[in-house]
């Protein structure tokens, strides 16, 4: 079992609102690995839109992505890219 971890900062203007959150969850759900996102001292399931939305990730929040499983490396890299690309927003 592999584990992977990466840091990222939320840069899009509206933060992780409904649309980015659902995009994030859909992406995370494509991987078999357990994926978590940690911020502000909390750590939640990255495949749960409710958990992610309830973290209130606004612009400027630093997050840590963690994955555990066969495709852990790829999961973390893909999700980090999604955040870095500002979810295709401004």
């Amino acid at each position: 079992m592999a584990t992977a971890e990466a840091k990222a900062t939320i840069e899009n203007k509206t933060g992780i609102h409904a649309r980015p959150a659902s995009l994030f969850v859909q992406t995370a759900s494509k991987f078999k690995s357990k994926v978590k996102i940690a911020a502000k001292g909390k750590e939640v399931d990255a495949k749960s839109i409710l958990m992610i939305m309830s973290m209130g990730l606004v612009k400027g929040t630093d997050v840590v992505l963690k994955a555990d499983g066969d495709d852990a490396e790829e999961a973390v890299a893909t999700l980090k890219k999604l955040i870095d690309d500002k979810f295709g927003e401004e």
């Binding site: 409904a18 659902s22 969850v25 939640v44 399931d45 495949k47 749960s48 839109i49 409710l50 958990m51």
Partner: peptide, 12 residues
């Protein structure tokens, strides 16, 4: 659609 995502949410 939003309601469906809330039903299927793994955290729930």
């Amino acid at each position: 659609e939003a309601h469906r995502m809330m039903v299927e949410d793994p955290a729930m």
